[in-house]
Amino acid sequence: MNRSLTLRTGQCHVQRYMRPLLDRIERGELDPTRVITHRLPLAEAPHGYDIFTNKADGCEKVVLKP
């Protein structure tokens, strides 16, 4: 269902890099959840930013859950 989601990237050419990556994710060839190292409640967002910024505890990607 259309949820009006917007995907934004940093310094990346969408057609050259993102489209092929998204296609591979859709086909199940890549699992982007592998980079998630920490899942925290939204109330712990300051802690999540701190461990991400300082690369503490092997942090690669933090997902905040409302």
Rank of each mutant, 00 (worst) to 15 (best):
R19S: 01
L22T: 10
D23H: 10
V35Q: 14
C12F: 09
G58R: 02
D57S: 05
C12V: 15
P41N: 11
V14Y: 10
K65E: 15
T53S: 12
L30G: 10
T37D: 02
P66W: 00
E44M: 14
P46I: 07
D50N: 01
A43M: 12
L40S: 05
T53V: 12
L40I: 09
A56V: 11
D23V: 02
L30E: 01
D57P: 08
E29Y: 05
R27Y: 00
V14F: 07
Q11C: 13
V14R: 11
G48K: 11
Q15T: 08
L22P: 03
Y17L: 15
P41W: 04
K65V: 11
V14S: 06
Q15C: 03
R19H: 07
E44I: 03
E60G: 03
L21M: 10
V35W: 08
L22R: 06
E60P: 00
H38Q: 07
Q11K: 11
L7I: 09
E29Q: 13
G10I: 04
R27M: 03
L64A: 07
I51F: 09
R19I: 06
A45Y: 09
G48P: 01
H47W: 10
L42S: 09
R34D: 10
A45N: 04
G10C: 08
D57N: 08
R3S: 02
D50R: 12
Y17A: 13
L64M: 02
D23M: 02
S4R: 09
R8P: 14
I25F: 07
E29L: 11
K61Q: 13
T6A: 11
F52R: 07
R16E: 15
E26F: 05
A45C: 06
T9Y: 05
T37G: 02
D57G: 08
L21R: 06
L22H: 02
V35H: 08
Q11W: 14
E29N: 10
P66Y: 01
R8H: 13
